[in-house]
């Protein structure tokens, strides 16, 4: 197995993982602070991608498209939070799952109603397209590299926000004891709306960024949503650090498993059977990983409370 291929696949895994992190960070914040399971997070991802594709189609500017994606997802997030989610904080998880499942149906079909069933296309801007040569002569698509850097930058900014600012302190306090910070004069419902908007904007951003390498279509959010759930469960719900590590683990396991498991199986099986069983195992790999993590640590790697 050539080293170039291995490095390429590791980069692919990192890129996938870091995009998952953008989704998972919002989910884990929303769960950590408000105790809410938000299945509709995938819809916000989709809204971001559609907004970006529309704005890019109208203006031709990729940066404007990204801003539009974050704005549209944040606005949708705030609306949903104020109209629906707000009523769900005090209910049990079952109601939350159902209500946000209902939101998925509404958002998906609504988008289909407006944009039709055909996928839209969002092009990688010219200045990011084409390959770039890395150390050791590896050719790698520049855009994917940009994704990794953007993701890392967002992760860093989020870390600063949570650990170094007043709002971050309030968010962390809200996670630990919501009555106490309400008693200290923090407007808890404003804080909740803010956290929800932040999570939504991150989902929208990742939808737009990934939308440029995949097609923008209805239902694009749900597979990512499930993966993001796997990520936050592995990392421990509520922990941003856990989400980052979980996301990278999931991204790398999925990407490397898909490439290398069939190869490894070929060492002791006939090629055809190895291909089949290798890719079967690879597609289950992250769920197996999650199962093992939960059996080992029932609250995830960095989770604290059950």
């Amino acid at each position: 197995m050539p080293t170039i291929l291995i490095i390429e696949q590791i980069l692919n895994g990192l890129q996938f993982g870091i995009m998952l992190f953008l989704m998972a960070a919002g989910l884990t914040l929303i769960f950590g602070v408000m105790g809410l399971i938000n299945l509709a997070h995938g819809s916000l991802y989709m809204i971001g991608a559609f907004a970006a594709a529309t704005v890019a189609g109208l203006t031709g500017s990729f940066v404007l498209a990204l801003i539009a994606a974050m704005a549209a997802a944040a606005i949708a997030g705030v609306l949903v939070e104020m109209l629906v989610i707000r009523r769900l904080y005090s209910t049990n998880h079952l109601d939350q799952v159902l209500a946000t499942f209902a939101l998925i149906l509404i958002f998906s079909e609504g988008t289909r109603l407006i944009f039709g069933s055909f996928p839209l296309f969002l092009n990688i801007p010219d200045y990011f397209s084409g390959p770039v040569t890395l150390l050791g002569g590896i050719e790698y698509p520049l855009y994917r590299l940009v994704l990794i850097f953007v993701g890392l930058a967002v992760a860093g900014a989020l870390g600063l926000l949570i650990n170094g600012t007043r709002i971050g302190i309030q968010i962390r306090a809200g996670k630990n004891d919501r009555e106490m910070i309400a008693a200290l004069g923090v407007d808890i419902s404003k804080l909740y709306t803010l956290v929800f908007a932040l999570g939504a904007a991150l989902a929208g951003l990742s939808g737009a960024l990934v939308g440029a390498i995949q097609s923008v279509q209805v239902g694009m959010g749900e597979p990512v949503l499930i993966l993001a759930f796997v990520v936050i469960v592995i990392g421990g719900i509520g922990s941003i650090k856990g989400a980052l590590i979980g996301a990278l683990l999931v991204g790398l396991t999925d990407t490397l498993g898909g490439v290398f498991l069939p190869e490894i199986f070929k060492l002791f099986m006939e090629p055809n059977a190895a291909q089949t069983s290798g890719s079967a195992l690879a597609s289950m790999a992250i769920y197996i990983l999650m199962g093992f993590v939960l059996i080992w640590r029932p609250t995830g790697l960095f989770g604290t409370r059950l």
Binding site: A99, F101, A102, L103, I106, E109, G110, R112, L113
Partner: peptide, 11 residues
């Protein structure tokens, strides 16, 4: 687009 109505009803 009946899923919209189903969604609203569920909600």
């Amino acid at each position: 687009f009946w899923h919209i109505y189903l969604g609203i009803l569920l909600l």
